[in-house]
Design a protein around this nucleic acid. Structure first.
Lengths: 329, 329
DNA sequence: CATCGTTGTTCCAACGTTGTAAAGACTGAG
DNA sequence: CTCAGTCTTTACAACGTTGGAACAACGATG
């Protein structure tokens, strides 16, 4: 593989002059520039990023720490983050934590400053004092833990409230919630929005209608839904804290021959592509994932450039996509 | 951030001795080893991977080049590849090509040997003469293009044949296929399996029942299914070349009030998690994704260690998961 | 003609690590 | 006590790059 030295020898100039050409330094004689460019072409030179970054003190990578790529929301988000990072000549390193405290801690520990320039974190279990970071970082979605790190995400309370308001506006009165979680920040906020929507419609908050989910997988949604359907007085609508839970819930309903939306309205959260094509299609809170990815990467880029470290809290837009699970075709 | 030099100063030994301890070199006096280890602990030393790799001539990264993370199959696979790579102390760099020739070429071009030690490729559009790789590589799934690169994947012909045999065994006679594609290797092979299954049952191959799909997204499956349902004599079963196409097809069927599986049996390919929870759940060819990920990474590891470059062709197992889309509950 | 500023090029050092070779310390045998 | 052999540590160079200083060439200015 060609190095600067090889190119320099071929062009008959010094290594530094080649480096200057490569880096677009202005004061290079047209003649030399041409010769260097030809030599670059001839050798197929590509800079050794390791060496460059060693010298520059950067790595050219950012970390994206998330629970699991097999969760569609994170897969879609990861794709968008990769695209956004490319704009800033960053490569993305994905670390999966599987939502466990141990996984998240070990991911954080491996994030030395020589591995990545910055990190995007989507933690689920981390405690306040785990956040001893050696690189600029941004949190996705969490607004519940109080920690001095910038955040990007939607207003979870407002979003959840909008979802439940929608159910109320359709005439539902016994509305369940699936996805309560003892440590998860977003779960807390979405429950808050659920409560708020009930309160403003003067509907009672019923304990048995709030079902926890340890993970947010389809199986958890199905299990939770079965619990709800077994109640003496089952709900006529359910707000699920993500789309996977909702898909699982709809599946469980179908297995009990409960019709959606006639007998049970369902709303999800995340607006996965999957939810557009399910039968029935799923009404869902749709965060602007592209905006989240861009905002997070841009924020880190600003922070990495200038050493100032003002905390930022970027609120990205969301919308409610109404589909068949709440309103029949 | 602590460097070897800092640790050495603290422990009162040379830089190299610290390096020796870090790398588990045997001949270090117990006393010094202890002092160094304490100093390592005290400084929280973590090796600078860039520098280490510069010196060692490795990068510590492998590339995973795939169409799109928002496609569940690739998202799941990526997660498994990341896990498998961790075993060999490799980090995974994901490049998305969006299935375009330009995207794949640019991804390949960016794969200099100083960026990654090896690459896992899942190409869709690449031509034979695009494969000028400067690092060890392995192809996923493609057995159609003839190119001197190792491959890992299932026997696509046999898998497709098994799927269509299953439909035939259920009594279906007018079986369609969705997903034909002019350049995609796997599409070609799956079509081959479809043909073979028809042939062995002495069923005719009917042109109008084979519908192409440019992309393999849900929307393409829905569009293709509409075409089939518009035929004067629509099929009573359909084999889709991936699960997304099948999900789209089932959605299109539902919109026309065609019942699955009573009026139309559907088989997919990939066995996405999504397909277990759809209504009806989807019968699907299930490649062992974990085996694919492990085989690919292990193969690259062997190749990267020893400089020998024997071509390998690893065939991983698959199974047919029968669900409601072909057999009612 | 000396001085100056501008433009263009080169040399040197350094980023943090590890392989090599050489030097130093210790052991046991002669 | 010397020597060879083994164990242990160190100095040095190098990986490929770039910032900074130094240097060289040049025309313009006084």
């Amino acid at each position: 593989m060609a190095t600067l030295k090889d190119v320099a020898r071929l062009a008959g100039v010094s290594v530094k002059t080649v480096s200057n050409v490569v880096n677009g330094y202005s004061f290079v004689k047209a003649d030399n520039r041409r010769r260097v460019e030809e030599a670059l072409e001839a050798t197929g030179y590509r800079p050794n990023l390791g060496a460059r970054n060693l010298r520059r003190g950067r790595t050219g990578f950012i970390a994206l720490v998330l629970p699991e790529l097999s969760i569609p929301y994170f897969a879609e988000l990861a794709g968008l983050v990769i695209a956004a990072a490319q704009e800033h000549e960053w490569n993305v390193l994905i670390e999966q934590t599987f939502g466990t405290l141990a996984g998240e801690r070990s991911a954080l520990a491996s994030l030395g400053p020589h591995l990545v320039d910055a990190a995007i974190l989507s933690p689920e279990a981390l405690q306040v004092d785990d956040f001893q970071l050696s690189v600029p970082a941004v949190l996705l979605g969490e607004h519940a833990i109080d920690v001095p790190i910038s955040r990007v995400g939607i207003d979870n309370v407002a979003a959840a409230q909008a979802a439940v308001r929608h159910l109320i506006s359709l005439g539902h009165r016994r509305i369940a919630a699936i996805g309560a979680h003892p440590h998860r920040g977003t779960a807390f906020l979405r429950l808050e929005g659920y409560r708020a929507a009930l309160a403003e419609a003067s509907l009672p908050f019923v304990d048995e209608l709030v079902v926890p989910a340890l993970n947010y997988h389809r199986a958890d949604g199905a299990a939770a839904m079965k619990t709800l359907l077994d109640l003496r007085n089952p709900p006529d609508a359910v707000f699920c804290f993500n789309d996977l839970l909702a898909i699982g819930a709809m599946r469980a309903a179908a297995e009990r021959f409960v019709r959606v939306p006639q007998d049970l309205a369902v709303v999800g959260f995340d607006n996965n592509e999957e939810s557009v094509y399910s039968s029935p299609s799923l009404t869902s809170v749709a965060p602007d994932k592209g905006a989240i990815a861009r905002a997070a990467v841009d924020l880190l880029h600003r922070r990495a450039e200038s050493r100032d470290s003002a905390l930022e809290d970027v609120e990205t837009p969301f919308s409610l996509q109404v589909r068949e699970s709440t309103v029949a075709r």
